[in-house]
Structure formats: structure tokens, C-alpha cells
Simulated scan of single mutants.
Amino acid sequence: MTDRHEGAAVRPLTLAWVSRHLEVGERVVRTEALHGGITAEMRRLTIGTRDGGTRDLVLRTFVDVEHAEDWLTREAGALTLLTGTDIPAPGLVAVDPTAAHCAYPSLLMTHLAGRTVLDDEGLEARVPLLARQLVAIHAVRPAEQPRGYVAWSTADSIVTPKGADAAAWAAATDVIRRPAPPYEGRFLHRDFHPGNVLFDVPPPGPAGPRITGVVDWAVTSWGPADLDVAHCSTNLALLHGPAWGLRFAEAYEAAGGILAAAASERLYWQVRDGLACSEEVQLVAQPWREAGRTELTTRAVEERLDAYVTALMDTLG
């Protein structure tokens, strides 16, 4: 077995577990570290098949992560739920959420074609695709309702960036001190953003980009569609500029999605997600830089977050 990148090696106990879930006569012949995740180690495993060919699987491992059992259990449930639907999610092969057999809690799944695309170029064509995909996710009706969403911040945990518009941030923080607005529950991905969507982007020509996969289903939840839209909006604002964050809600509605009717209710969800990001700007920006967006320093992302929060308050406040 060969490792293509430093850190790609699979721990022996985990490798033995993976091997038990392969077809007779198959073996792992190559491993490759996948970059872009924040909390999990991701590896592509090339499997040698009996006929001399290969196929790929993906191994997701949480090392010393507090919520690993919960996240892997939820992800396994989501992948099982989505099997046979139009949602392009990976197929579940095996899961060991408590590390009963692996070195650390792990999940084995099928590998999807495509790649994440974080460049500004071509964004105009990708945003409607993201919106349509999210509408389709929200249309899933699980037989068993997932657990309710968990807010990722409180008004007291917000970290106002240096040099930010203090008045706008104070007003935004006051917004999320209010009780959450009433909502109609939907099946949420809960971490839907460009970094968790795979695209096939052909060379310039009549065929445009298409989505080939949606990954990272570890925090699937039940809650308002506005919350998923807000999370993608925040990521678009930080990756591509505040205007794109504001445009995503419009794209979602144009794709047939339904959001809160009142501007004040939309503001609550949009601001809640934007402010939550203030606590982990460095963690959010690092994988983007590793993917080639080297200009997105922590400071640059903080400045975009400030501009986005201010724009939300000006537009919906």
C-alpha cells in the first residue's frame, strides 16, 4: 500500500476494520489525505478489485473530537436516508461511531466524482445551482424527524472584529437576544456551503457546471430553511464578498424555496449565522487558504464579515 501525501497513512486498527468491509479479494492499495475539513481527517482509499481494477472509498475519522459519536451517528443516518433519492450524497459503507473497532471514531463511504470550487470565476453560474440543490434537500421528508437544530452561538459569545462597526454589531447582537421566530420545520443539512459541494466544471463551452455531490452530513438537523440559507449566505459573503451573501436568499426563492415572510424574521436567522462565524474566523479561513485562496487571511475574512453583518442590518434591519 502506498501513501500519496504525508498524513495519509491509515492506522493499523482502522485499516483492519476497513478491510473487513471490502468485497472478497479486495484490498486497500493506496491512501491519499483530502484537505478542506476542519474537524475530521479525510482520506481517499483506492481499493484494488478482484478483476484488476480499482475503486475509491472515503474514510472520515474524528481524532479527539468531543461530539464524534453524535456526528457520525447522524451522518450515517442521513446517508442511509438519502440512499435512492435525487440528493447526490455518498453511500454509507460502514460506521464505527464509538471506536469499538477502529483507532478513532470513523465512517467509511463511497467516493463521489467532482471537486470543490471556491474561485470567484464562474460564481454567477454556480450560485443558482447551490440554491436549487438546497431547495431539493429541504424537500426531503424523513420518516423519522431528526433532532432539532442547535444554535452555534449566543449573544454573549460573539467576538466583534477589530475595527468593526460597533453600532451595527451591537444592534445585530440585540437581534439574536430575542426569542427565535416561529418556523415550519425542514430537513436541514446544517453545514451547506461551497466547501461541502462537489462540482463538475467542464472546459469553456455550452455545457455549464453541475453539482456531483453534497458531503459532510454530520450535523443534519430539523429547523427553519432560513438557517441553512443563512449559513450558505455567510460563507458566500466571506469567500466572494458581502453582495453574494445577500444574493443567495434571492437565488433560493427563485429556485422555489420558501423563507420567512417577515424581514425581521429573515434578519434573525441571517444575523445569527453571521455572528456565529465571528467566533471561529481563523478556523473557517484556514481550509480556504489551503485550497488556494491565499488572499483570505484571517484579517481579510474578518473585514468581509464586518461588511456583511453591517449590510444585513442596513438591508433587513
Score class of each variant (00 low, 15 high):
P181E: 12
A180V: 15
A164I: 03
A172V: 02
T220A: 14
N196C: 10
A166D: 07
P224D: 08
P203A: 15
S221A: 15
T160G: 12
A230H: 01
T154S: 12
F199K: 04
A167M: 08
A230P: 02
R178K: 02
S233T: 07
I158V: 15
G208K: 03
D174F: 04
L236C: 00
N196S: 15
V197W: 04
W217G: 11
P206V: 05
G208S: 00
P179M: 05
D191C: 03
W244C: 09
K162L: 15
A218P: 04
N196K: 12
A237W: 07
H193V: 08
N235W: 09
A218C: 10
R177D: 06
S157V: 13
F192E: 02
L198D: 09
P206Y: 00
A170W: 11
P194T: 10
A180F: 13
S221V: 11
A170R: 14
P206W: 01
A170E: 14
A218S: 11
I211T: 06
R247D: 06
A180W: 13
L238D: 02
P224N: 08
G241F: 02
G241K: 01
D228G: 08
S157D: 15
A225W: 09
A172L: 06
V201Q: 04
I176D: 10
I158C: 06
G163R: 10
A164M: 06
P203E: 15
T154K: 05
G241T: 01
V219W: 07
D156F: 06
D228F: 14
A166C: 02
V215P: 10
V215T: 12
R178E: 03
G195F: 01
T212R: 00
R177F: 03
L198W: 11
T160A: 14
K162F: 13
E184M: 14
G213N: 09
I211R: 05
K162G: 14
S221N: 12
Y183H: 15
A180G: 12
T212H: 05
I211A: 02
L238E: 06
D216P: 04
A207S: 14
G208M: 01
F192M: 03
D228L: 11
R247S: 07
A243K: 10
S233N: 05
I158E: 02
T160I: 15
A207K: 14
E250I: 05
P204M: 09
D156C: 01
R177A: 00
A167T: 14
V215C: 10
K162H: 15
R210S: 11
W217V: 08
R178D: 05
V229M: 06
T173M: 06
N235Q: 14
A249I: 00
G223A: 12
V214G: 11
G185Q: 06
F187Q: 03
F199V: 08
H240T: 08
